[in-house]
Lab assay of single mutants.
Amino acid sequence: VFVDDHLLEKVLELNAKGEKRLIKTWSRRSTIVPEMVGHTIAVYNGKQHVPVYITENMVGHKLGEFAP
């Protein structure tokens, strides 16, 4: 499973602090992992960042699938 390192670091850091804030990313190719559930990730679609709230059903899919 591929997840960009910088994105995973941000998610794990927020989980350690117990925070839930918006994470901006250009990494549409990253796979959604269970650690991301409950976070809102702003995924770049080529024009703007689209906020995507991550749920359990999204695990295993790519971030780009949810930012048309």
Rank of each mutant, 00 (worst) to 15 (best):
residue 1 V to F: 07
residue 1 V to C: 15
residue 1 V to G: 15
residue 1 V to M: 09
residue 1 V to I: 14
residue 1 V to W: 08
residue 2 F to C: 15
residue 2 F to Y: 12
residue 2 F to S: 05
residue 2 F to R: 05
residue 2 F to W: 14
residue 2 F to I: 06
residue 3 V to I: 10
residue 3 V to N: 03
residue 3 V to R: 01
residue 3 V to P: 04
residue 4 D to P: 03
residue 5 D to K: 15
residue 5 D to C: 15
residue 5 D to M: 15
residue 6 H to R: 13
residue 7 L to F: 01
residue 7 L to M: 03
residue 8 L to P: 01
residue 8 L to F: 11
residue 9 E to C: 15
residue 10 K to P: 01
residue 11 V to K: 01
residue 12 L to F: 06
residue 12 L to A: 08
residue 12 L to R: 14
residue 13 E to T: 08
residue 14 L to T: 02
residue 14 L to K: 01
residue 15 N to D: 03
residue 16 A to M: 11
residue 16 A to Q: 11
residue 17 K to T: 11
residue 17 K to C: 11
residue 17 K to W: 06
residue 17 K to V: 09
residue 18 G to Q: 09
residue 18 G to E: 06
residue 19 E to W: 05
residue 19 E to K: 08
residue 20 K to P: 02
residue 20 K to R: 11
residue 20 K to S: 05
residue 20 K to N: 04
residue 20 K to Y: 10
residue 21 R to P: 06
residue 22 L to W: 10
residue 23 I to C: 03
residue 23 I to Y: 01
residue 23 I to Q: 01
residue 23 I to T: 02
residue 23 I to V: 09
residue 23 I to P: 01
residue 24 K to D: 03
residue 24 K to V: 14
residue 24 K to Q: 08
residue 25 T to W: 03
residue 25 T to F: 02
residue 25 T to V: 02
residue 25 T to S: 05
residue 26 W to L: 08
residue 26 W to T: 06
residue 26 W to C: 15
residue 27 S to G: 03
residue 28 R to A: 05
residue 28 R to F: 05
residue 28 R to Y: 07
residue 28 R to V: 05
residue 28 R to C: 10
residue 29 R to T: 10
residue 29 R to I: 15
residue 30 S to R: 02
residue 31 T to P: 03
residue 32 I to D: 00
residue 32 I to P: 00
residue 33 V to M: 09
residue 33 V to D: 02
residue 33 V to Q: 05
residue 34 P to M: 15
residue 34 P to W: 13
residue 34 P to D: 11
residue 35 E to Y: 07
residue 35 E to K: 05
residue 36 M to N: 00
residue 36 M to T: 01
residue 36 M to A: 02
residue 38 G to D: 13
residue 38 G to C: 07
residue 39 H to T: 01
residue 39 H to P: 00
residue 40 T to K: 07
residue 40 T to Q: 09
residue 41 I to D: 00
residue 41 I to P: 00
residue 41 I to E: 00
residue 42 A to F: 04
residue 42 A to Y: 04
residue 43 V to L: 07
residue 43 V to M: 03
residue 43 V to K: 00
residue 43 V to E: 00
residue 44 Y to C: 08
residue 45 N to S: 08
residue 45 N to E: 07
residue 45 N to T: 09
residue 46 G to N: 07
residue 47 K to F: 10
residue 47 K to R: 12
residue 50 V to A: 09
residue 50 V to L: 12
residue 50 V to P: 05
residue 50 V to K: 12
residue 50 V to Y: 09
residue 51 P to C: 10
residue 51 P to M: 08
residue 52 V to D: 00
residue 52 V to Q: 04
residue 53 Y to F: 13
residue 53 Y to D: 10
residue 54 I to Y: 00
residue 54 I to C: 13
residue 54 I to A: 03
residue 54 I to M: 08
residue 55 T to M: 14
residue 56 E to W: 14
residue 56 E to S: 14
residue 56 E to R: 14
residue 57 N to K: 13
residue 57 N to P: 12
residue 57 N to A: 13
residue 57 N to I: 09
residue 58 M to P: 00
residue 59 V to Q: 10
residue 59 V to S: 07
residue 59 V to G: 04
residue 60 G to V: 02
residue 60 G to W: 15
residue 60 G to C: 15
residue 60 G to Q: 09
residue 61 H to S: 10
residue 61 H to E: 09
residue 61 H to D: 08
residue 61 H to Y: 13
residue 61 H to P: 00
residue 61 H to I: 10
residue 62 K to E: 13
residue 62 K to H: 11
residue 62 K to Q: 10
residue 63 L to R: 00
residue 63 L to F: 07
residue 64 G to H: 08
residue 64 G to I: 06
residue 64 G to F: 11
residue 67 A to L: 06
residue 68 P to L: 10
residue 68 P to W: 08
residue 68 P to N: 07
